[in-house]
Measured scan of single mutants.
Amino acid sequence: WEITFERNGKRITVRTTDHRLLELFEKLWRNGADERELERLAEEINR
């Protein structure tokens, strides 16, 4: 799966075969987690 999240013109794409990681990322994104931390998390998930 691949999903791109966008907020205030900032886009972060997450790619993984584990839908649970996408759900976790989406919850953090929707709850306003720090964008720098989300970028780092996305990099780890995308590996």
Score class of each variant (00 low, 15 high):
Thr16Lys: 02
His19Glu: 10
His19Phe: 15
Asn8His: 08
Arg40Trp: 09
Asp18Gln: 06
Arg11Asp: 05
Ala33Tyr: 10
Arg15Gly: 03
Leu38His: 00
Val14Cys: 02
Asn31Pro: 01
Glu6Phe: 08
Asn31Met: 13
Ala42Gln: 03
Arg20Phe: 12
Glu39Met: 11
Glu44Cys: 14
Gly32Glu: 08
Arg20Thr: 12
Leu24Cys: 06
Phe5Pro: 00
Thr13Phe: 05
Thr16Cys: 01
Leu28Ala: 15
Glu6Cys: 08
Ala42Val: 09
Glu39Cys: 06
His19Pro: 13
Glu6Asn: 04
Thr4His: 13
Ile45Asn: 01
Arg36Ile: 15
Phe5Lys: 02
Thr16Leu: 05
Glu6Gly: 01
Arg47Phe: 11
Glu23Gln: 12
Arg40Cys: 10
Lys10Thr: 13
Leu28Ile: 09
Glu39Ala: 06
Leu28Trp: 10
Gly9Pro: 00
Arg15Leu: 06
Asp34Thr: 12
Leu21Pro: 00
Gly32Arg: 02
Trp1Lys: 08
Thr17Gln: 13
Leu24Glu: 11
Arg36Val: 15
Trp29Glu: 02
Arg7Ser: 12
Thr4Asp: 04
Leu41Ile: 10
Asn31Phe: 05
Leu24Val: 09
Glu43Val: 06
Thr16His: 10
Thr13Lys: 07
Asn31Asp: 15
Thr16Asn: 05
Ala42Cys: 06
Arg40Ala: 15
Val14Gly: 00
Leu41Arg: 01
Lys27Arg: 13
Lys27Phe: 14
Thr17Lys: 12
Trp1Phe: 12
Gly32Phe: 07
Asn46Gln: 05
His19Ala: 14
Ile45Lys: 00
Trp29Ile: 10
Leu24Trp: 11
Gly32Lys: 05
Phe25Lys: 00
Phe5Val: 15
Asp18Ser: 09
Asp18Ala: 06
Asp18Lys: 04
Ile45Tyr: 03
Glu43Phe: 07
Glu43Thr: 05
Leu38Arg: 01
Lys27Leu: 13
Arg15Ser: 08
Glu44Trp: 15
Ala33Phe: 07
Leu22Gln: 04
Phe25Ala: 02
Glu2Asp: 07
Glu43Ser: 08
His19Cys: 06
Glu44His: 11
Leu41Val: 10
Glu44Phe: 15
Arg15Lys: 14
Thr13Val: 12
Glu35Met: 15
Glu23Met: 13
Glu39Ile: 11
Trp1Ala: 08
Asn46Ile: 10
His19Asp: 07
Ala33Gln: 05
Ile12Thr: 03
Arg11Tyr: 15
Asp18Arg: 03
Asn46Tyr: 06
Arg30Asn: 15
Glu2Phe: 09
Asn46Cys: 11
Lys27Ala: 11
Val14Gln: 00
Glu39Val: 12
Ile12Gln: 01
Glu23Pro: 02
Thr4Asn: 07
Glu35Trp: 15
Arg11Phe: 15
Trp1Ser: 06
Arg30Phe: 13
Leu21Lys: 11
Asn8Gly: 10
Thr17Gly: 10
Glu35Pro: 07
Asp34Asn: 12
Ile3Trp: 12
Leu22Met: 11
Asp18Val: 05
Arg11Met: 12
Val14Asp: 00
Gly32His: 11
Glu43Trp: 06
Thr4Val: 13
Thr17Pro: 04
Ile3Met: 14
Glu39Asp: 08
Asn31Ala: 09
Arg11Thr: 13
Glu44Lys: 07
Leu41His: 02
Phe25Trp: 04
Leu21Trp: 11
Trp29Lys: 03
Arg7Asn: 05
Ile3Val: 15
Leu38Tyr: 02
Gly9His: 03
Arg40Leu: 14
Trp29Thr: 03
Glu44Gln: 09
Asp34Ile: 15
Lys10Phe: 15
Arg30Trp: 13
Arg40Gly: 09
Phe25Gly: 00
Glu43Ile: 07
Glu43Gln: 09
Trp1Glu: 05
Phe25Val: 03
Glu44Asn: 04
Ala42Leu: 12
Leu41Cys: 05
Arg15Glu: 03
Glu35Ile: 15
Lys27Asn: 14
Val14Thr: 01
Arg30Asp: 11
Glu35Thr: 11
Thr16Trp: 04
Ala33Val: 12
Arg47Asp: 10
Trp29Val: 08
Asp18Asn: 13
Asp34Val: 13
Asp34Tyr: 07
Glu43Lys: 07
Arg40Pro: 01
Val14Glu: 00
Glu39Tyr: 06
Asn31His: 08
Arg20His: 12
Asn31Lys: 09
Glu39His: 06
Leu24Gln: 12
Glu26Ile: 15
Leu22Glu: 01
Arg15Phe: 10
Glu2His: 07
Glu26Cys: 04
Glu26Thr: 12
Arg7Phe: 10
Arg20Lys: 13
Asp34Pro: 10
Asn31Trp: 06
Asp18Tyr: 03
Glu35Ala: 10
Glu37Phe: 12
Glu6Thr: 08
Ile45Pro: 01
Leu24Tyr: 12
Asn8Ile: 02
Ile3Leu: 13
Arg15Ala: 09
Lys27Ile: 11
Trp29Asn: 02
Arg47Tyr: 10
Thr13Leu: 05
Glu43Met: 08
Asn8Thr: 04
Lys10Arg: 09
Asn8Pro: 02
Leu22Ala: 05
Arg15Tyr: 11
Glu37Tyr: 13
Glu37Pro: 00
Arg36Gly: 14
Arg36Gln: 14
Arg20Leu: 12
Leu41Asn: 01
Ala42Glu: 04
Ala42Ile: 10
Arg7Leu: 13
Trp1Pro: 06
Glu23Val: 12
Arg11Gln: 13
Glu26Asp: 08
Arg11Pro: 06
Phe25Ser: 00
Thr16Ala: 10
Leu21Gly: 02
Leu22His: 03
Thr16Val: 08
Leu28Ser: 09
Leu28Gly: 02
Leu38Asp: 00
Asp34Lys: 03
Ala33Asn: 05
Glu26Trp: 14
Trp1Met: 10
Asp18Leu: 03
Lys10His: 14
Glu26Met: 15
Lys27Val: 13
Asp18Glu: 08
Leu21Met: 14
Glu2Cys: 08
Phe25Tyr: 02
Ile45Asp: 01
Thr13Cys: 03
Arg30Thr: 12
Arg30Leu: 14
Ile3Lys: 15
Asp34Arg: 02
Lys10Gly: 02
Val14Ile: 15
Lys27Gln: 13
Arg7Met: 12
Trp1Arg: 09
Lys27Asp: 12
Lys27Gly: 08
Glu26His: 08
Trp29Leu: 07
Val14Trp: 01
Glu6Ala: 03
Leu21Ile: 09
Gly32Ile: 03
Glu23Ile: 12
Val14Leu: 14
Asn46Thr: 04
Glu26Arg: 05
Arg7Pro: 01
Leu21Ser: 07
Asp18Ile: 04
Thr13Asn: 04
Arg30Pro: 03
Glu37Gln: 10
Lys10Asn: 09
Trp29Gln: 03
Glu6Gln: 06
Glu2Ile: 11
Leu21Phe: 07
Ile45Ala: 04
Leu38Met: 07
Gly9Lys: 02
Arg15Trp: 05
Leu22Tyr: 05
Glu6Lys: 03
Val14Ala: 01
Arg30Gln: 13
Asn8Phe: 03
Lys10Met: 13
Asn8Tyr: 02
